[in-house]
Nucleic acid binder design. Structure first.
Length: 450
RNA sequence: CGGGGCGUAGCGCAGCCUGGUAGCGCGACGGUUUUGGGUACCGUAGGCCGGAGGUUCGAAUCCUCUCGCCCCGACCA
């Protein structure tokens, strides 16, 4: 993309309403625009990152064998009366009346709808196991939205639901989700630690939430420092293998890691003191096993091999997709701006032309731009007639992980400069070398994709 | 929902107390200059001062109501 043809309304000054760094940077980088309290438009670059995160989630769900669907944002109140949650959910649920005076609502979650779909079309144990999921907008009418997309009222969320015949099968689905979530977060450049959690309004006796450590996190967390050494990495896993998934769950949940909701000081104090950590975390996902809570109240049953009708075992699983942009920025930025991890960056590299209008730098930039695109990379070419300082400031602010600087001085020796946003390290090399170096850098990202 | 604060140009703000018909910086646009970390100078455009009502000869300014937004708290992915 050429910057002069793009729409990226960056701000030089901090908008006063933004208090935390991710909110400030998303506004300054021209990624979002607030339309109303807790409700945002996604501008091109914000949308790009949002889409990349969605893509990772889709790919990892596919890998785990989960099937995508798309359910409506507006739901009938009747379904919620059936489950008993219409009255329980409270004022967080946005209630709407249509022209026929029917009670509707903007879905804050989808257990009712998915259960309705299931009971309409699934009736035999032979159709199980089944996990359906979607990435869809939700609305929760928070009393006080804040922190930009970290706690908006409208938010994009992946929600998945597993249906199984037995408790053991449902627990395997739970484990499978845990593994797929670990992989997803790592591809986004995040370390999200599974912590024992509280059921909340969804209920359930077995649940973990995934937290990204960051100073601005909303939850206080307590953990054994050994847990931060764990990496899922690129290990191969058979999602159908109960043993393999169980082993991963045990590996990632055996050490102490809890939020303040479930924290138990007596157990925590048994950890050697030098490994005890207290920090803050941002919740970016949660997985639940809740058994037959919804299937019983809503009549989602299957006929088992013995000919008896039995309520299905269920769980639900969420990833806060839009919130993840905030979480990633909270975990990865400096005083100049965002630092995108390679897995989610809106553009893989920025090309900075130091002397726009100069025949040799212009043509060198154009050649680089074309070459990078031909290698499957997506560069942002800053072709504005601006001074070097302004271009550097912009590319730093928007957080592209790599920058190629092209100026007459270097070009005289066939050199450009390749700079890492994260380390600031700059190396002179030929344009061809810069391209191959970038291809190399992004190879793991390509390899991780399906 | 309790407590606090703010709505004046795209963004950040001054002016309001002590009423007299709106200003600064950044940004935008045009030009000159400059050119390896937000260059300097000159010029131009842009605002029914959140909205409604009232007081007054006259309201951004005073009064009443209202809408929106932000912060702290309780709540929450």
């Amino acid at each position: 993309m050429r910057l002069t043809r793009y729409f990226m309304p960056v701000l030089k000054e901090d908008p006063k309403e933004a208090q935390i760094v991710s909110h400030r940077l998303m506004l300054r980088a021209g990624m979002i625009k607030q339309q109303s309290a807790g409700i945002y438009s996604w501008l091109p670059m914000g949308l790009k990152v949002l889409n990349r995160i969605q893509q990772i989630v889709h790919e990892e769900q596919a890998r785990a064998g989960h099937i995508p669907v798309l359910m409506p944002t507006i739901q009938s109140a009747d379904l919620w009366r059936e489950s008993g949650r219409y009255d329980d959910y409270g004022e967080e649920m946005l209630r709407i009346t249509d022209r026929h005076k029917r009670d509707m609502l903007y879905g804050p979650t989808n257990e009712e709808v998915i259960t309705d779909i299931f009971r309409a079309h699934v009736s035999s144990y032979k159709d199980l196991p089944l996990t359906l999921y979607q990435i869809q907008w939700k609305f929760r009418d928070e009393i006080r939205p804040r922190f930009g997309v970290m706690r908006g009222r409208e938010f994009l969320m992946k929600d998945g639901y597993n249906f199984d015949l037995t408790r053991d099968a449902a627990l395997h689905a739970y484990n499978r989700h845990l593994v797929s979530y670990l992989r997803s977060y790592e591809r986004m450049g995040l370390q999200a630690i599974p912590m024992r959690a509280d059921g909340g309004p969804i209920g359930g006796d077995y649940t973990h939430e995934f937290l990204v450590l960051a100073e601005t996190g909303e939850s206080e967390v307590f953990y054994d420092s050994e847990i931060t050494d764990l990496k899922f990495g690129s290990r191969a896993i058979d999602y159908d293998s109960v043993e393999q998934c169980q082993a991963v769950l045990e590996e990632f949940t055996s050490r102490y890691a809890r939020t303040d909701e479930t924290h138990d000081a007596a157990i925590f104090d048994q950890i050697p003191e030098e490994r005890r950590r207290t920090a803050r975390g941002i919740e970016v996902g949660q997985i639940f096993y809740f058994g037959t809570k919804y299937s019983e109240s809503m009549g989602a049953t299957v006929v088992g091999p013995d000919g008896n009708r039995t309520p299905v075992e269920m769980g639900s699983h969420g990833i806060g997709v839009s919130r993840l942009l905030g979480a990633i920025i909270e975990a990865s930025h400096d005083d100049k701006g965002i630092i995108w991890p390679e897995g989610v960056t809106p553009f893989e590299v920025g090309i900075v032309n130091l002397k726009q209008g100069d025949a040799s730098t212009d043509s060198a930039c154009e050649a680089l731009y074309a070459e990078l695109k031909s290698k499957g990379l997506d560069p942002l070419y800053d072709d504005r007639d601006e001074r070097a300082g302004a271009k550097f400031a912009t590319v730093d602010l928007i957080g592209l992980p790599w920058r190629i600087t092209v100026g007459p001085r270097g070009l005289a020796n066939n050199k450009v400069e390749l700079t890492s946003r994260r380390t600031g390290e700059a190396v002179e090399m030929s344009p061809q070398e810069a391209v191959s170096r970038l291809v190399e850098v992004y190879q793991p990202v390509k390899d991780a994709a399906l």
